[in-house]
Design a protein around this nucleic acid. Sequence first.
DNA 1: TTTGTTGCAAAGGGTTTGCAGGAGA
DNA 2: TCTCCTGCAAACCCTTTGCAACAAA
Lengths: 141, 141
Amino acid sequence: MRLKKNPDSAISLRAAGMKATPQRCAILHVLDSSDRPLSVEDIRQELGDESGVPTIYRNLQSFVDQGWAESLVGVDQVMRFVRCHSTGHHHHLQCEGCGRTVEVQTCAVEASLAALGQPAGFRVTRHQLALYGLCPECQHQ
Amino acid sequence: MRLKKNPDSAISLRAAGMKATPQRCAILHVLDSSDRPLSVEDIRQELGDESGVPTIYRNLQSFVDQGWAESLVGVDQVMRFVRCHSTGHHHHLQCEGCGRTVEVQTCAVEASLAALGQPAGFRVTRHQLALYGLCPECQHQ
DNA sequence: TTTGTTGCAAAGGGTTTGCAGGAGA
DNA sequence: TCTCCTGCAAACCCTTTGCAACAAA
């Protein structure tokens, strides 16, 4: 993938007070095009070494700060990033077959939060839910 | 904390085919005594440098393999370990005030699993839920 | 021109591995 | 005694930082 400016990305970036550099636009585009969480290494390979690792880290952090992406830490302790298309509270549902990820708007836990903490006297304020399963395609294999 | 053998630990360890070394017993005891997730560094300090870091890592891994402990990776990408007292499916509820952790046997998500994946056609097979809140003591401060 | 951004290199820090010496059973 | 375990040191690897050169606006 070549470094080029996507007009849409550039507008969003500038609206957020960031300069629309080719690297930054390209990283955002890679994230946009992928439906699975990407590591920094994934992105670097996708960009064909045309962007340095520190640059990728720094830009991804900016995107997370803007609420455009979310960072996940897996069991392998490697950071991965997913583009967030909804702004509110949501969860990610990841296919264990192909790695594809979709956002789930409905929160399965919210209704039970009070009940969950009650036995221990806890007041639950926050939660993190990761869902894993098989997407339609992978179920047929 | 001194390195000493706890008779109970020793029995469990030998039953699992492991030698009951002082280090191993001590690590298990530290984990047993704590009600919050501990990093390797936490354990090393608790043991007063009487056990090497690689030894702690190796033993914790054995405990996880035995189902005696669970490893968690936080946003800081540091591994933490908690003693598991129940063998089945459960979740952890952690206090954001003092760090104390309790196990929650009831699973808030199980009932909704099918419904969660339905919109995307996913079949949900596995999930991870982390709950954060305030324990009774910390609510009063 | 000004300010933010990139790239390189190096540092940082948690985790893992290899191997020789040591201790449990 | 035999096997497993420990400790040390070094290797690994992902991530972050410092700084000078560069480019967007």
